[in-house]
Simulated scan of single mutants.
Amino acid sequence: MNKIGIVNYQYSNHNYGAVLQAAALHFYINHTLGYESEHINFIPQGAKPKLKTKLKSIINRYLRDFGLKEKKIEHASFINPEIFEEFRQKWLPRSDNTYHSFEQIKQANLNYTHAIVGSDQVWRPSYADSSALVYFLAFLNNDVKKISYAASFGNDFWELNEQDTKKFADEVKQFTAVSVREISGVDICKNTFGVDAQHVLDPTLLVGRAFFDSVIGEAIPKGNSDIVFYKLDIDDKFEKCIEDTSSNFSFSNKNIYYSSQGRKYYYRPVSDWLSDIRESKLVITDSFHCVCFAILFEKPFLYYPNDNRGLARLESLLTLLGLENHIYRGDVDPAELAKSLMNIDYSEVNQKLAKLRDGSAKFLYDALA
């Protein structure tokens, strides 16, 4: 029987989308396709904050309090990252062993019939740094069938120069099947790696809403609000966008990324985060996956781009669904833009999504056959 190992950023202790898309892919492979899969528990060195990082965070916090540093909340400031591990323990089976480097995982000689990398920005070398080759499955023997599912480059270009690219291109050529999350990724695969790739949906959109309703379960977060927003670095312009939009609609608003008590910041449980989106009237975010959940729960939304995260990820998806006008491009008042986006014909969106889902499902079915 096929035994499938999955590699992505499931280890994240601050990113809701990372753990939810990982759980969605596992669920689809196991419960829809009927295979046995687990996530290979690769946690690169440096993924967990060190004492030095925590001390730096404390110093920066005091500098911000005195106006000597720009306001920004760092991950090390949060005191309950264990909520992501609690989610993984319930929804994300992982390998018994944990690996922290390319050399360590290569020496493990893992015994899988198939391996899948994806989704998320797993093919963006600057994100993976020294572990980049792990996400090109270079640690596996050649008898393992290698597949990428909805791998993302993050941008509409490949980051590395020609000299550094060869080793990655050689690895991609060993894949049995290649799929990417953005249409621009199809061109990158062809022009940079010399391989054909298929455009597919992110696992969250592939698995569909019912799975996430089951994740939410009986969760009823306190203080549901009309507008929910999800953004890590909240600057003055974004704050004004939220305030103006709330005022225009006479809506309450809620930051669903975290709650705070004094200088202490708390992540919301994953099920509560999903429930907040499902129960809202409008979602404002710079997150790819938060937009995916707004679409799954059929909510009006405004995508507020973040230059560091790459606009290509959302442009590709929203153009295919006829929702590209939900991207705030800075040329109009965001509160007024949000007002014009409240009535989405989700029957039409769902028809387009169903067609894309069929093609994505066929790719994964054929790749694992």
Rank of each mutant, 00 (worst) to 15 (best):
E86H: 08
E86P: 04
F87M: 07
F87R: 08
F87T: 06
R88M: 03
R88T: 08
W91H: 12
W91K: 05
W91R: 06
P93Q: 09
P93I: 00
P93F: 00
S95D: 09
S95V: 02
D96S: 13
D96R: 12
D96F: 01
N97P: 02
Y99T: 11
Y99F: 04
Y99R: 12
S101R: 08
S101V: 00
F102E: 15
Q104D: 11
K106F: 00
K106R: 12
K106A: 06
K106W: 04
Q107T: 08
N109W: 04
Y112T: 01
Y112I: 04
H114N: 15
H114Q: 10
I116P: 01
S119D: 11
S119Q: 09
S119R: 11
S119T: 08
S119L: 13
D120H: 07
D120C: 14
Q121K: 13
Q121G: 08
S126T: 09
S126C: 11
Y127G: 03
D129M: 06
D129Y: 05
S130L: 07
A132I: 05
V134F: 12
F136L: 08
F136N: 05
F136W: 10
L137M: 08
A138D: 15
L140G: 04
L140S: 02
N141S: 10
N141V: 03
D143V: 02
K145P: 01
K145N: 12
K146H: 14
K146D: 13
I147K: 08
I147Y: 00
I147N: 00
I147Q: 00
Y149E: 00
Y149P: 02
Y149T: 02
A151L: 05
A151M: 08
S152T: 01
S152R: 12
F153M: 13
G154M: 04
F157I: 13
E159S: 15
N161A: 11
Q163V: 03
D164G: 05
D164F: 07
K166R: 12
F168W: 05
A169D: 01
A169F: 03
E171A: 07
V172K: 12
V172N: 01
K173E: 04
K173R: 14
Q174S: 02
Q174H: 06
Q174M: 04
S179F: 05
S179T: 06
V180T: 02
V180L: 13
I183N: 15
I183D: 15
S184W: 11
V186E: 15
C189R: 11
N191I: 01
T192L: 09
T192F: 01
G194L: 13
V195W: 00
V195P: 15
D196H: 07
D196Q: 15
D196L: 12
